[in-house]
Amino acid sequence: MAGKGGVGKTVVSAVLAKAAARLGLSTLVVEVEGKSGLATMFGQSALGYDEVVLSAGGGPGGEGEVRARTLTPDDALVDYLRDHGLSRLSSRLASSGALDVVATAAPGIKDILILGKVKQLERQGAVDLLVLDAPAAGHAVTFLQAARALLDTVSVGPINAQAKEVAAMLTDHARCRVVLVTLPEETPVNELVDTAFSLEDRVGVGLAPVVVNGIYDPVAGLGGVPAAAEAAGTTMTSDEAASLWAAAAFRQDRMRLQDEQLIRLAERLPLSQLRLPFVFRTDIGPVEVDHLADRLLAEIAALPEPV
C-alpha cells in the first residue's frame, strides 16, 4: 500500500484487510513506520512487534481474521542475524547505532531487511493476504527499488541472496501487487501517476487498481434550495436557507473538482479506479472501517473482468 502522506494509506490498509476478511481470507497488516492509527481503527490501543488480532475470524459469515504488527529495520536486523546464527551480535548491533553505519555503507539495506522479513512471512503462509503499509510515496519507489539497487552494490553473500529473493517476490505479479492510494486532488494525483510509472519501469512490480480515497458521495437536492423547500411544501428562515445553500454550493464545487481529477487520473493512468467515499468524521473507527469495506467490495465487484 503506497501513497503520499495524508491520503489515508493506513485507512485503506485497514479497509482492504477487513474486506479480505469478509471473503474469508485471513490477513496480516504490517506497519513499517512504527506509529500507527491502525489499531484504533479496530477499536484497539496499540501495535507492537508481536502480532495482535485486530478483528477475530470465524464469524457466522465465515470471516477471516485481521492481524497486525509493526516491523522496523532494527527488528528486522535482529531477526535476520538470529536466523543466520549470529544472535550473539544482534542486540549489541541494534543498540549501538551500528545499523546506521552499515546502512550507510550499503544503502537500501534497511529496506531489504524489511522486505526480506515480509518475504519470509509470506513464505510461512500463515495468512492468506499480507498488507504492507509502505513508507510515504516518493520513498515508496526507493523502498521497493532497494532490492535491485543492492544487487548492484553487494555482489555476493547472504544479502545478495536475500535481495534476489525479494526482487523475485516483488516482480511476480501473482504473488505481489502494489496498491496506490490517492485523493481526488491535483497534487496527490500527479504524484500517484509519477509513482505508478516509476514503479512499473524501475521496479517491475505489478500494479493493482488504484484507490481514490475521500470522494464526496452525491446527495439529493444539491441543485436548488428553494425548489427543494417548495417541493416539500415547507418554508424556512432565510438564515437556514443560506446555510443549506452555502453547504450545497461547497459540496458541488468540490465534487466538480473531484470529477475533474478522477477524469484526469483516468486519462493519464490506464488503471481501474476503486473509489472510496469521504467519511464525514475526523476519526475512523470499527464502524467506519466496516462501512468502507462494504464500499470497497462493491467497487471490486464492479471492476471489469481481468483479461
Binding site: V219, A220, G221, L222, G223, V225, A227, A228, A229, A231, A232, T234, S243, L244, A247, A248, F250, R251, F280, R281, T282, D283
Partner: peptide, 19 residues
C-alpha cells in the same frame, strides 16, 4: 427527498467541522 438531502449535506459538514 431533495430537502432531506440538503439537510443531510449540512449535517455532514457541521459534524465534521465540530469534530
Amino acid at each position: 427527498t431533495d430537502l432531506g438531502g440538503l439537510y443531510q449535506n449540512l449535517a455532514d459538514f457541521e459534524l465534521v467541522a465540530s469534530r
